[in-house]
Amino acid sequence: MRSPRTRGRSGRPLSLLLALLCALRAKVCGASGQFELEILSMQNVNGELQNGNCCGGARNPGDRKCTRDECDTYFKVCLKEYQSRVTAGGPCSFGSGSTPVIGGNTFNLKASRGNDRNRIVLPFSFAWPRSYTLLVEAWDSSNDTVQPDSIIEKASHSGMINPSRQWQTLKQNTGVAHFEYQIRVTCDDYYYGFGCNKFCRPRDDFFGHYACDQNGNKTCMEGWMGPECNRAICRQGCSPKHGSCKLPGDCRCQYGWQGLYCDKCIPHPGCVHGICNEPWQCLCETNWGGQLCDKDLNYCGTHQPCLNGGTCSNTGPDKYQCSCPEGYSGPNCEIA
C-alpha cells in the first residue's frame, strides 16, 4: 500500500473562530452545534475503483483480482440542504470535509470508535433544520502531484436527524465497494433544542441566579424568581408596597416606613400621643390635641387635680377649673 497522505478536516480554523465568538458573545450567535460522521468499515474485495480499474497495477489473469497494490482509501463528505432527488452538483451549503487515508481495500474501525482519523466534524452556527442531504465518497489517494485521485464508491442519503448523543448507523451496500458509517448531530455546550438555537448558560451573578434543565429552560436558584432569576424573594410577610430586597430573605423599608415587614409608618418627629397611617403624620389619640398630640384635652380625667370633693371642668388643652364644695378653696380645693 502506498504511503498515506493526510487530509485535514475542512473548515476547522473557521469552526474554532466561530466557537470563540459564540463563547464571548453568546447572544450574537443564534445557534451552535456540529454534524459528526465516523467511518466504521470498508470492504473493497478486489481493490477496484468505481470505473472498474484497479487502484494500482493490473489484474491477475486467473481470479481477475487486482494484484499490485491496495487502495489508499480516504473519504470526502458533503452536507447540504434536503433534496428529495439528490444531485451531486451544487455547493455543500451545510459544510464539507475529508479524512486522511485511513486504510486499504478492506478495514474495520468499529473497535477504535472515537479515533479522530476516521471522524469528520462539520460545525454550524445556524439553526439546525433537522432535514438534510449527505454525500459520502470513498477515494483512492494517488500520492502523486500529477496523477489525480480516483473515486472508489459514493453514497447519498436524505433524511431527518435531531440533536442527540446517540449515533445513527448507515450503510452503502451497492457498487464495487461497501462501507458503513455513523452520524449524529450534537449541540455545543449551553445550546439546546432541535435547532441547537436555545441558549442557556448557568450563572450566579448580578445578571441572574439559575441553572439549566435538559431542555435549556432556566431554573431559578432558591430565593430568586423572574424570567432571568434576578429578582430576590423577600422575607415572608414583607410589604410588597413599602418593602423590597436585593438579597433573598431580606426586607428593606422605603423612606418613611419601618418594622420587620416594613408595614409600620414613621410618625412625625416628636409626636407624643399620636399615630400615623402614612409617613410623617401625627393623628392624635382620644383626649389629646396639638400638632404633636402633646396637649391633654381631658386634664381632669387624666390627672384628677381637684381635692376634697371638688368638681373638675376641662377648660382647654392642659387647662381645668375646680368647683370647690363649701368650706374649701384654692385652685385644687386644697385650702380648708
Rank of each mutant, 00 (worst) to 15 (best):
G256A: 04
H242R: 14
L16R: 00
E180D: 14
E48Q: 04
C187F: 02
Q50R: 04
S93G: 10
D294G: 02
C306W: 01
S131A: 02
C333W: 02
T169S: 11
C282Y: 01
E285K: 00
G316C: 13
I152T: 01
I152M: 09
A58S: 10
G310R: 07
F206L: 13
S41A: 04
M42V: 01
E81G: 15
Q321P: 03
G89E: 05
L24R: 01
S84A: 14
G90R: 11
D149H: 09
L307R: 09
S244Y: 02
A127S: 04
N143S: 11
S158L: 12
N51H: 03
F199S: 07
G223V: 10
L37F: 07
C196G: 01
G97A: 14
T311N: 01
T106A: 06
L135I: 02
G8C: 15
K241E: 12
H268Q: 10
R64L: 15
T219S: 08
F35L: 02
K218Q: 14
G33A: 01
G90A: 15
N60I: 13
S32T: 06
Q258K: 04
A177D: 01
W288G: 00
Q214P: 14
L297R: 15
G175V: 11
L283H: 04
S156T: 07
I266S: 12
I335L: 09
T174K: 04
F206Y: 03
L297P: 02
Y181D: 00
N108S: 04
C324S: 04
R165P: 14
C55Y: 01
N332I: 13
G52W: 12
C312Y: 00
F35V: 03
C238G: 12
A58G: 09
N287T: 08
G8V: 14
G216C: 03
D149N: 07
M42L: 07
L21H: 10
R25P: 03
K241Q: 10
Q291K: 11
G259D: 07
A336V: 14
G33C: 12
Y328F: 15
G216A: 03
T133A: 02
R68L: 09
L18R: 01
L247R: 14
C212F: 02
I152F: 06
C92S: 02
G226S: 04
L170V: 12
G330V: 14
V146G: 13
C262G: 02
R201P: 11
F94Y: 06
E334A: 05
A232G: 13
G175C: 12
N60D: 15
S156Y: 03
P248Q: 06
R130K: 02
H273Y: 10
S164C: 13
I39T: 00
D250Y: 04
G327V: 15
Q182E: 05
Y82D: 12
C312G: 01
I151V: 13
H157P: 01
M221K: 06
Q43L: 09
C92F: 00
Q236P: 12
C245F: 01
R252S: 06
G62V: 15
C282F: 00
G159R: 03
C282R: 01
N308K: 10
W224G: 12
S93C: 12
W167C: 01
T311A: 11
G159D: 11
P61Q: 12
T145S: 12
E285V: 00
T286S: 07
R130S: 08
P227R: 09
L14P: 15
G30V: 13
C187Y: 02
C187R: 10
A177S: 14
Q34P: 00
I151L: 15
E334D: 11
C262Y: 02
N105I: 06
N197S: 02
R113G: 06
C271R: 00
C200W: 03
A138G: 04
Q304R: 05
F179V: 11
T67A: 14
P331L: 14
C229Y: 01
W128R: 07
C333F: 03
P129Q: 02
Q281P: 02
T186I: 06
Q43E: 01
N314Y: 14
E137D: 08
C71R: 15
N108I: 11
G114D: 09
N162D: 12
G309E: 09
D69Y: 11
Y210D: 14
P331T: 07
N115I: 11
P4T: 15
P240S: 03
N115K: 06
K218T: 13
F107L: 07
F194Y: 06
C196W: 00
N143Y: 05
N308S: 09
K27Q: 10
L24Q: 03
R68P: 11
I266T: 05
C312W: 00
R59L: 15
W167L: 01
Y299S: 09
R119G: 09
P325S: 15
N217K: 09
T6A: 15
L24P: 05
I152L: 15
G310V: 10
K198Q: 13
R117G: 04
H178N: 06
C253W: 02
Q291R: 10
T186A: 11
N173D: 08
D144V: 11
P148T: 01
A111S: 03
D189A: 09
Q304E: 11
